[in-house]
Write a protein that binds this DNA or RNA. Structure first.
Length: 665
DNA sequence: AGCACGCCGACT
DNA sequence: GTCGGCGTGCTC
């Protein structure tokens, strides 16, 4: 008699045992269909054992071992185990969340049976197309990473936009493929994968490149996963979820824009793909390259402490392109009625005269962030969220950007009947209209989530811009990343101050990274770029650092603040969050949770529960309780004990979860 | 987390 | 007399 120990997608800490006589140890890592309660579910076989601790009459028989896909490797299972412990979720929850959706059910794949890596012919190393002569700094970076190609090491590739970080990792990947190994490249946005995929295809003609992101069709995603697992894929390129791609001969990990907030998953399994990638590199004994012009303060501190190897690319790779000049316009003295100050308008005019392109950055979709009654002071609030409804003039709608709720724009104030309702503030739609009025002959193209949805792919829009079909681009952060436009020489930041004094301690770090990123869009190919930043606080250290392109100086300021305030990266945090219909219920749960915190809590601080910054979301009230510790291990031990207690609190109307290393408050 | 079973209020 | 409220208990 043999037994399977199966990980199942339920929030229970244990594995579940099943009888299965046909099982062999080779089935470890296979998916299996088992009866669970009164339905059948797919789990993952973690052990095959000769006896079970449960009495034989309590055990049920496994329905069917799913051998249509190769078993998950011991390394992969170990990575899932780590995530299970670190992020405080059951092994089954982690494993099923990490599998592509198509493999979470028992429907067999009609793909041909895979060969295992041992008998699969290793794909021949594709040729690498050399394009650019490398700078001395790039060569040095490549040399030092290559020197430890067979050992774990974290390399922080720190270089300004255009300094050739991509070229460095392309060369490293060429070396990896030449050895017959595989490379994994993580990027923050789905929108960035097609462009990068094209670049990879050009540079590695004939290579098998697999893409993994959440917008892919299930079949394609599963096929890519299987190619990665069989070893036939040489390069896997994807967003955060690609960190779980099975790679039997992984030789190099790359995390591009490593500081980007989207590497942190904010639902279900709340993992940081960057951190998981580092754990994975360590386990595999291979180098990992973190790339950024504005590294996260976590990584920056590791580099300062010598735990990460800092590799600087201080110059732009093309000798003829300099960093853009950043100029500030003080909107207290250079006021503007429509959001465009005199100096910015003049600079745009100059670009139009020279047939150069301008990018106006405003990270706020819609026409105006709120509609207000001039008479009684009513403002358009979302019924389900503690947020304002945004005016979308073109669709004649008020929309909540948090829950998606929409309503028609009212003709009269719902409170007092007054007909004089004013859109207050400025979004990209309104900015587009103002620019059209100021520059009637300019071709203006707005790019944000709304226009990308309506007018086809981001790729197609980029191509139109590249073909010179637009003079002025107005857009949100969708424009800040990735794509560089050859003829773009001016970047205007219209309302830079939003978020400058936000309550979230990570806000300035993010803001600096975003502004540096969007600044980098200006002037690349022999044409010097200019950045005009409209602000009411031109002396703010963030802007002063931005003018000097001084990430290091500003990072030091922020790190000093974080140390004094005892925030990460000087402490480690976890958040216990609760949501319920009423905030009191959520807070009540958290108070109960606090009283059940392990009493032996050396070096762990449990703070008071408080409502979240976005207190109501989609009709639910949200509160959280922050736990801090100076040691990661201490925090982990604390959380593990606490989690068991939390499970026993009976609070039927409350949904709760733990978020380790939270980034949203 | 689901999804049962189980024991008390307003309806065809 | 039943339909259904969500309390609590279990899932190998």
């Amino acid at each position: 008699m043999k037994f399977l120990r199966v990980a199942i997608d339920v929030p229970l800490p244990q594995l579940f045992d099943y009888r299965c006589d046909e099982a062999a140890t080779e089935d470890i890592g296979c998916r299996v269909l088992v009866p669970f309660g009164r339905k059948k579910v797919v789990g993952v076989i973690v052990e095959v054992v000769a006896r079970s601790d449960h009495s034989a009459d309590k055990l049920r028989s496994a329905e069917r071992i799913l051998r249509d896909v190769l078993p998950l490797s011991a390394e992969w299972i170990e990575l899932a185990r780590f995530c299970s412990g670190y992020y405080q979720r059951s092994l089954g929850e982690v494993m099923l969340a990490a599998l592509p959706p198509r493999l979470r059910n028992a429907r067999p794949l009609r793909a041909t049976k895979q060969k295992s890596d041992d008998d699969a012919a290793r794909p021949a190393a594709p040729p690498f197309v050399e394009r650019h002569r490398l700078t001395a700094e790039q060569l040095r970076a490549i040399d030092s990473i290559s020197a430890s190609a067979q050992a774990f090491g974290v390399f922080l590739l720190f270089g300004v936009t255009g300094s050739g970080k991509t070229e460095v990792y392309l060369r490293l990947i060429a070396g990896v493929l030449a050895r017959g190994a595989q490379a994994l490249v993580l990027v923050p946005e789905i929108a960035l994968t097609p462009a990068l995929q094209t670049a990879f295809r050009e540079r590695f003609p004939g290579a098998t490149i697999v893409v993994q992101h959440s917008a892919m069709a299930e079949g394609a995603r599963a096929r890519g996963w299987i190619e990665a697992q069989s070893g036939s894929a040489q390069i896997v390129l994807g967003t955060r979820l690609a960190v779980f791609a099975p790679l039997p001969r992984l030789g190099l990990l790359v995390v591009d824009e490593e500081q980007d907030p989207s590497f942190k998953q904010q639902e279900s399994l709340r993992y940081s793909a960057r951190d998981v990638a580092i754990v994975r590199a360590r386990a595999a004994g291979i180098p990992i390259v973190l790339c950024s012009a504005t590294p996260s303060l976590e990584s920056w501190r590791h580099a300062q402490a010598g735990r990460y190897a800092l590799l600087r690319l201080s110059r732009r790779a093309r000798a003829d392109s300099a960093l853009p000049e950043v100029r500030m316009v003080d909107t207290r003295t250079d006021a503007s009625r429509d959001g465009i100050s005199g100096p910015l308008a003049q600079a745009i005019g100059e670009r139009l005269a020279r047939s150069e392109q301008t990018l106006i950055f405003l990270n706020r979709r819609g026409y105006a962030p709120v509609l207000s009654c001039a008479k009684c002071g009513w403002i358009s609030g979302c019924k389900r969220c503690s947020a304002r409804l945004v005016v979308h003039l073109k669709d004649r709608e008020l929309r909540c950007h948090h829950c998606g709720d929409a309503a028609r724009i009212p003709r009269a104030c719902p409170e007092c009947g007054n007909l004089d309702l004013q859109p207050v503030g400025r979004g990209t739609q309104r900015l587009e209209a103002s620019l059209a009025e100021r520059f009637p002959r300019a071709r203006i193209l707005r790019m944000d989530r709304d226009t990308v949805r309506h007018r086809g792919s981001l790729e197609a829009m980029f191509a139109r811009i590249e073909a010179g079909e637009a003079d002025i681009l107005v857009g949100t952060q969708i424009l800040a990343k990735g794509h560089h436009f050859e003829n773009l020489t001016l970047v205007g930041v219209v309302d830079a101050d939003a978020g400058l004094y936000a309550a979230d301690y990570r806000a300035p770090e993010r803001m600096f990274a975003q502004l540096e990123q969007v600044s980098g869009r200006a002037g690349r190919a022999g044409v010097p770029g200019e950045v005009i930043l409209q602000t009411r606080y031109p002396n703010h250290p963030l802007y002063q650092a931005l003018v000097r392109h001084d990430f290091e100086g500003y990072a030091q300021i922020l790190l000093d603040e974080r140390r004094q305030a005892e925030f990460p990266p000087y402490v480690f945090e976890a958040a216990l969050r609760a949501e319920a219909l009423g905030i009191d219920v959520a807070l009540g749960f958290l108070r109960a949770a606090a009283t059940r915190a392990p009493s032996e809590r050396d070096g762990v601080t449990v703070y008071d529960p408080s409502p979240m910054m976005l207190e109501r979301l989609a009709g639910r009230a949200r509160a959280q309780l922050i736990v801090q510790a100076h040691s990661r291990v201490r925090l982990q031990l604390f959380l593990r004990e606490w989690r068991a207690e939390l499970a026993s609190i009976r609070a039927p109307a409350v949904r709760w979860h733990l978020d380790v290393d939270p980034t949203e408050f």
